[in-house]
């Protein structure tokens, strides 16, 4: 198969979009968990009123702080990562084959077998690679040309790299969990967190009444 090649230019906004997409799953769960905790904390205050001070009074400000910071974290990490990278990495020629991904520019040349890439993800505008739990490569789809070329990239990535956030199957191929399984897993986590929060509230209620 002919390598898929493209001249790619990446901006800070591209990085932010890719980081937000990679953190979306965890971010959603975290946001819901924080809402549950905030509700639990409010219920706790109501049940315990008038309450003696204790470590629990920190739960409310910490939950509020985390709720404010959580949606901003991806953008913060993306801007830091983008700023830390020499500008030469932002305009490179990308060549994708069945075996590896190659990047080249005037001052750099790299090659990675697909086994060194942990995952890939896609947004409406971008393809991105994930390595060691962080975004390593961001490629605007526009760089690859028409829809047919983009479909070749998508098919190549799907063949060679696990989709980000999913496991591999026994053959080492991407094991894409269907949307229903993902929804159930998310709901399961939220329910578990809700149980934890309610347990805390119940413990306080018992304690107050004792």
């Amino acid at each position: 198969m002919e390598p898929v090649e493209a001249d790619v230019e990446v901006t800070e906004d591209d990085y932010v979009e890719a980081f937000e997409a990679s953190g979306q799953k965890g971010g959603r769960v975290l946001r819901r968990a924080l809402v549950v905790l905030a509700v639990a904390a409010a219920a706790l205050v109501a049940l315990s009123w008038p309450f003696p001070p204790g470590a629990w009074v920190l739960v409310v400000p910490v939950a509020l702080l985390a709720a404010w910071l959580a949606p901003r974290q991806s953008g913060w990490l993306a801007r830091r990562a983008f700023a830390a990278r020499p500008a030469a990495w932002n305009a490179v020629r990308v060549a994708l084959t069945e075996d590896e991904v190659r990047l080249s520019a005037e001052l750099l040349e790299t090659r990675r077998a697909w086994s060194r890439v942990d995952g890939w993800l896609e947004t409406p505008r971008l393809f991105a690679l994930v390595g060691a739990s962080t975004i390593t490569d961001v490629w605007p789809k526009a760089a690859f040309g028409d829809d047919e070329a983009r479909e070749r990239v998508r098919a190549l990535l799907a063949r060679c790299v696990p989709a980000h956030g999913t496991g591999r199957d026994a053959a080492g191929r991407p094991e894409a969990r269907d949307a229903r399984t993902r929804r159930l897993a998310r709901k399961g986590r939220v329910v578990l967190l809700a149980i934890l929060a309610l347990t805390l509230v119940a413990l306080y209620a018992v304690w107050r009444s004792a």
Partner: peptide, 25 residues
């Protein structure tokens, strides 16, 4: 600082939640 700041915040949040639980117990 960019990468480890959020990690420190998560650990601090965890500490507060556990402290509340341990205190209640």
């Amino acid at each position: 600082r960019g990468a480890w700041g959020p990690f420190a915040l998560y650990l601090a949040t965890l500490a507060v939640l556990w402290a509340a639980l341990v205190e209640a117990l």
